[in-house]
């Protein structure tokens, strides 16, 4: 920066470059593995120059993993979680910040506390709820001895079941609340003076103002939802509802790719699963980094 330090500069470049190699090497090896035939990929060590079997490995992985279907499922879930999360977070933050009704501080804390326990640590009972999502509501009413005759609502093997439990956290709500608190009071004042109701103010003023936050939250949520593994593994057991990450679990040593694993095809499948969130992050890296740092969990 300030002084001339040729030796240290050399060391810096060397360290940064080797860091890059360490971070890229695994993916490079995986990519090379997808270009070899099975005997070559199983030689130890595997040659590090590309072979000529890339297309057939990728197409075999594509068919065996049924990725045409699985990627669509993952996309539906990721987009569903992203949209649902943003909508619900923005609405509840708006309610907490811009309305004055008794108990809203308590409600805020009720939502905020959900940050403490990620889905994974309450996985067993959440799964039980997914088998009949209306059961908690029914139980609540039966406390007062009221039977409201709700039907059973089974979420297993459905997009709703994959999406809803992932939305039920406070990540975005907290982010939106912080942002709304920084919006100048005068904006709301003048909007009210011009005769705008709450929904109008929300839609025409707050939503456009929060576009940056929304983009950051959207990228984070998309990647988070796409990479979900444990929850889809439990909720889905029908092949046509499998998400892309769950297909990986069926690849090794599973029935799909044989045992021992057919590594060249399995690695192609790995890359197929990795690529979509990677594209999103590379294209929207500014928002991704911003979302990471802001959401602070």
């Amino acid at each position: 920066m300030i002084e001339r330090t040729p030796i240290l500069n050399f060391v810096t470049h060397a360290i940064l470059l080797s860091g890059l190699v360490i971070l890229l090497l695994p993916i490079f090896i995986v990519l090379i593995a997808t270009t070899h035939d099975l005997p070559t990929v199983n030689t130890v060590p595997m040659p590090l120059w590309p072979g000529s079997h890339m297309l057939e490995n990728w197409s075999a992985a594509w068919t065996k993993g049924d990725f045409a279907r699985a990627l669509v499922n993952s996309l539906v879930v990721a987009v569903g979680v992203t949209v649902g999360k943003i909508t619900i977070a923005a609405l509840s933050a708006f309610s907490i910040v811009y309305f004055r009704y008794p108990g809203r501080t308590v409600l805020f804390w009720l939502i905020f506390i959900t940050l403490m326990l990620p889905l994974e640590v309450r996985i067993v009972p959440t799964y039980a709820v997914a088998a009949d999502a209306l059961r908690p509501i029914k139980a609540l009413f039966s406390l007062g001895n009221i039977d409201i005759g709700l039907p059973e609502w089974n979420l297993l093997n459905s997009y709703t079941g994959l999406i809803l439990p992932l939305i039920a956290t406070a990540t975005g709500t907290f982010l939106y609340r912080q942002f709304f608190l920084t919006v100048p009071e005068e904006l709301c004042e003048s909007a009210k003076m011009d005769g705008a109701g709450p929904l109008r103010f929300f839609w025409d003023i707050l939503i456009p103002l929060s576009a940056t936050n929304m983009a950051a939250l959207a990228v984070i949520m998309f990647v988070y939802a796409w990479n979900q593994f444990l929850w889809p593994l439990l909720v889905v057991n029908k092949p046509h509802m499998m998400t892309a990450t769950v297909q990986l679990d069926r690849i090794v040593p599973g029935p799909l790719f044989g045992q021992p694993p057919i590594w060249n095809e399995a690695m192609a499948a790995t890359l197929i699963v990795m690529i979509p969130p990677l594209i999103v992050v590379i294209m929207l890296q500014r928002w991704f980094i911003r979302g990471l740092i802001q959401s602070d969990k």
Binding site: I88, L91, S92, S95, F99, L110, I111, R122, P165, T169
Partner: peptide, 13 residues
């Protein structure tokens, strides 16, 4: 506006 979030949080958390 806050009811959907509360329902979700109650049911799944």
């Amino acid at each position: 506006l806050i009811v959907p979030q509360l329902l979700l949080v109650f049911t799944f958390f």
